[in-house]
């Protein structure tokens, strides 16, 4: 009883095991994982400190010079050492645009993972803890949603939210904020099922354990038991799912932006950059679209590798 009370074992367990050496050792043994972690960290740092590390400010119109437009990467014949990865049609430095774009992509990715995580955990806990009709209803919903690809659900929510704000002008949101809200809602709401199912499964296991029964017996409020006692114990697998979902969320954001229902070109994410650059592919300015595409692919690959490794290292049974 006291044990369950004093610490949040589920949250700290991975960390403790990590420091114990087993996981850390497996991390060190796998050069691919170390590389993936380094790349991911690099992206996170670049995204967090974007304005300070980017060589140029791609959105400061005063600093843009049309004479600098469509310069190829620095190592090519017509390259300019000021612009390592070349420039786009408005003279924006591609490297800086990619850094700012990763910032937007990761921001939306994190926000939507957070949304689906909170929603999924809440519904999963409720489902597993309350059981009965609530459980049946939530799980039926999950099944129906799961039988459609997430991207389709996201597109649908996207269309609905766009339509809602169109007909409710009293909300007074500007284009960019609206796009962010729409994206986070549509990606977040389309990915809760995984969390809910996992949390429900572990909740069902935890519910039967002695510490929960003991808590019931001494008259602790069920809501408190759910949040304070069971929740910490079901968080382990959730973190693994969240890592893999981050990669999926970044892909989803890029896809939606590429399809033209995401971030507008005034403040581009990686997907928007690819979409805009796509128009220049035929006139030979390949770097405007290929570099953001590569940046996206590398980010997703790194996070995926990290997630795979985390899954095996933390919980081999999840496989």
């Amino acid at each position: 009883m006291a044990d369950a009370h004093t610490s949040a074992p589920g949250l700290l367990d991975p960390l403790r095991r990590f420091l114990d050496g087993d996981v850390w050792a497996s991390f060190k043994r796998s050069p691919v994982t170390v590389g993936a972690a380094a790349v991911t960290l690099l992206y996170f740092l670049a995204a967090a400190f974007g304005p300070w590390v980017a060589p140029h400010d791609p959105f400061d119109l005063a600093k843009l010079d049309l004479l600098d437009s469509l310069i190829p990467p620095a190592w090519m014949a017509d390259g300019d050492p000021r612009f390592l990865l070349g420039t786009d049609d408005q003279g924006r430095d591609m490297l800086s645009a990619i850094i700012y774009g990763s910032r937007v992509s990761l921001l939306i990715g994190f926000a939507s993972v957070l949304l689906s995580m909170v929603l999924g955990i809440a519904l999963g806990l409720l489902s597993g803890f309350v059981g009965g009709a609530v459980d049946a209803f939530i799980m039926r919903m999950a099944e129906i949603q799961l039988s459609f690809p997430a991207i389709l659900v996201a597109l649908l929510i996207n269309g609905v939210v766009i339509g809602y704000f169109k007909t409710h002008p009293e909300w007074q949101v500007d284009q960019v904020t609206l796009a962010y809200v729409v994206l986070v809602l549509s990606i977040g709401l389309s990915n809760w099922v995984q969390y809910a199912r996992t949390v429900r499964g572990s909740t069902l296991v935890e519910r039967g354990k002695e510490y929960v029964q003991a808590a019931h017996v001494i008259g602790i409020h069920p809501a408190k038991i759910m949040l304070r006692h069971i929740l910490p114990n079901v968080m382990g697998p959730v973190l693994v799912i969240a890592t893999i979902q981050l990669a999926l969320a970044v892909i989803a954001e890029a896809t939606l932006s590429f399809l033209g229902v995401g971030v507008p070109p005034t403040e581009p994410s990686l997907g928007t950059l690819i979409r805009v650059g796509n128009d220049y592919l035929f006139s030979g300015e390949w770097w405007i679209t290929i570099f953001p595409g590569a940046a996206l692919a590398i980010l997703v690959l790194a996070v995926n590798l990290l997630g795979d490794w985390l899954r095996d290292a933390l919980n081999p049974k999840l496989r």
Binding site: A247, T255, V300
Partner: peptide, 11 residues
């Protein structure tokens, strides 16, 4: 699997 569909298409 890590390359989004549209990036493959563009390539």
């Amino acid at each position: 699997v890590s390359l989004p569909t549209f990036v493959i298409g563009i390539l």
